[in-house]
Design a protein around this nucleic acid. Structure first.
Lengths: 204, 204
DNA sequence: GCTAGAATGTTTGCACTGCTCACATTAAGT
DNA sequence: ACTTAATGTGAGCAGTGCAAACATTCTAGC
C-alpha cells in the first residue's frame, strides 16, 4: 500500500512515529523521549508529527497503550489460565521481566502522569485491570475479587517498580547501574519468593 | 547565622534550593521541575544552583532523600509499633496517603530513574527498606523476612502508584482528572480492603 | 481530465530548558 | 593587608515543545 515513489507523503506517519518512539525508548533506556528525535528517526520534519498527535503526551499515550497490549500478551503467554498461586507467580515473574527488559517503555506506561482523557490509553489499562480480576477470580474463588484483584496487581506492580529503581538491594557488584537488568534468573527468583511469601500462605 | 545585610551571598542557598523545589513540586503537581524555576524562586541567578548541585539530577536526589525521610516519619506516626496485620494496614494507608497528597514529590522519589551513586538518596531508601523489614519481623515472626519484606513493600508501593495513576477505576465522576485526590476516605478504605484481602487471610 | 478543497509535510520562529565558561563579589586564613 | 577559596552573575550554546504561515500531494465532484 505505501508507495515509496513520492517522498513528500510518508504513507503512514502515525504508525512510523509510534515505532520510532519505541525504538528510541529501547535504545537509550531513558524515558525522556523527544518528539524531535522521533521525527528525525521517522525521516520527517520536526513538526510533522503534530499532524497526527495533538502533543507529546498524545504520542506517549499511544506508545503506552501499545505497551499495555503487549504486556497483556506476555502475561497470557506466561500462563494461559492460572488456577493456583504458583501459576500466579509465573505471571508475576513475566510482568516484572517485561518491566526490567523495557524499563523506558514501562515507565512511559505507568510512571508518567497519564491523562485519562486519552481513550486508547484508558481502554488498554482497563483491559489490564479486568484481566487481573479474571485471574484472581480463578485463583482465589472465595475472595472479594475487587479488593483481591487490586491487591495482587499492586503487589506485582510494586515489585516491578522497586526492582526497576534498584530499591531491592543490588545483587550485583556495588553501584553497578546496569545491575537491574543483570541477571533475570535472580530477579525471577526474587519475585517468586515474594509472591510465595504472601500468596503461598493463603492456601494453608 | 545567615545575615541578610548583603544580598550577594545567599547564606544557605543549598537548603533554599531544596525548599524552593519542594514548593514548586507541590504547587503544580507536575514532576517536571525546572532548575531555572528553582533559581528564580530562590531569588538567585539561573546558574547559581550549580555551585551546590552538580546537575538537575543531584537536586532531585536531595529532594527525594528528604521526601523519604518525611515519609518514614509519617509511617511511624501512623503506628509506632505494628504487630498485627490491621496495624500494618494503617501504615499502608499512610504510605498511599502520602503519595496521593504529594504526587509530584512521590514521583521524584520513585518514578524518576534514580542514580544509586547519590549517597544521600541511597541511604534514605535503604533506611526505608530496613524499616519495612523490621515491621515484617514483628507482624509475621515466622516468615522469611527478606521475601516477606519485599512483598509487603511492593504491595504498598504498588497501591500507591496505581492509585496515583488512576488505574484503580475512578471513584469520582468520569474523567475527572482531580479525582485521584478527591476523597481520602475512599482511598483509605480501598487500601485497607486490599491489604486485608491479602494479609488478613494469612492469619487464618 | 480538471479543478476545488482536504490531508499531510516543511520552514520559520518563539519561549523555555540544562549546562559551560569567563567574570564579579564576598568571606576566610595567614 | 593580601591572597585564596567560595559563591553568585551574565552571556551564550544546543536542544526542546509548540504555533503559524506556507508548500505539496491526494481525493472528490464535475
Amino acid at each position: 500500500m505505501p508507495q515509496q515513489a513520492s517522498t513528500y507523503h510518508h504513507g503512514d506517519l502515525r504508525a512510523a512515529c509510534v515505532r520510532a518512539a519505541r525504538e528510541l525508548l529501547e535504545e537509550d533506556g531513558s524515558a525522556a523521549l523527544s518528539l524531535r528525535a522521533v521525527a528525525r528517526r521517522a525521516g520527517v520534519s520536526a513538526t510533522a508529527p503534530y499532524r497526527h498527535f495533538a502533543d507529546r503526551d498524545a504520542l506517549l499515550s499511544a506508545v503506552a497503550a501499545q505497551g499495555c497490549r503487549e504486556l497483556g500478551e506476555r502475561l497470557v503467554a506466561a500462563h494461559p489460565a492460572p488456577r493456583a498461586p504458583e501459576d500466579l507467580a509465573a505471571v508475576a515473574a513475566a510482568y516484572v521481566r517485561f518491566a526490567v527488559e523495557r524499563p523506558a517503555l514501562f515507565r512511559v506506561m505507568f510512571a508518567e502522569p497519564c491523562d485519562p482523557a486519552n481513550a486508547e490509553r484508558a481502554a488498554a489499562t482497563e483491559a489490564m485491570r479486568e484481566y487481573v480480576g479474571a485471574i484472581v477470580h480463578d485463583v482465589f474463588p472465595g475472595s472479594d475479587c475487587e479488593a483481591m484483584g487490586t491487591a495482587v496487581w499492586a503487589l506485582v506492580h510494586g515489585l516491578a517498580f522497586l526492582q526497576l529503581d534498584g530499591k531491592l538491594g543490588a545483587a550485583g557488584p556495588a553501584g553497578d547501574p546496569a545491575a537491574v537488568t543483570a541477571d533475570p534468573a535472580v530477579t525471577d527468583e526474587r519475585v517468586r519468593a515474594a509472591v510465595d511469601a504472601l500468596l503461598g500462605t493463603v492456601r494453608r
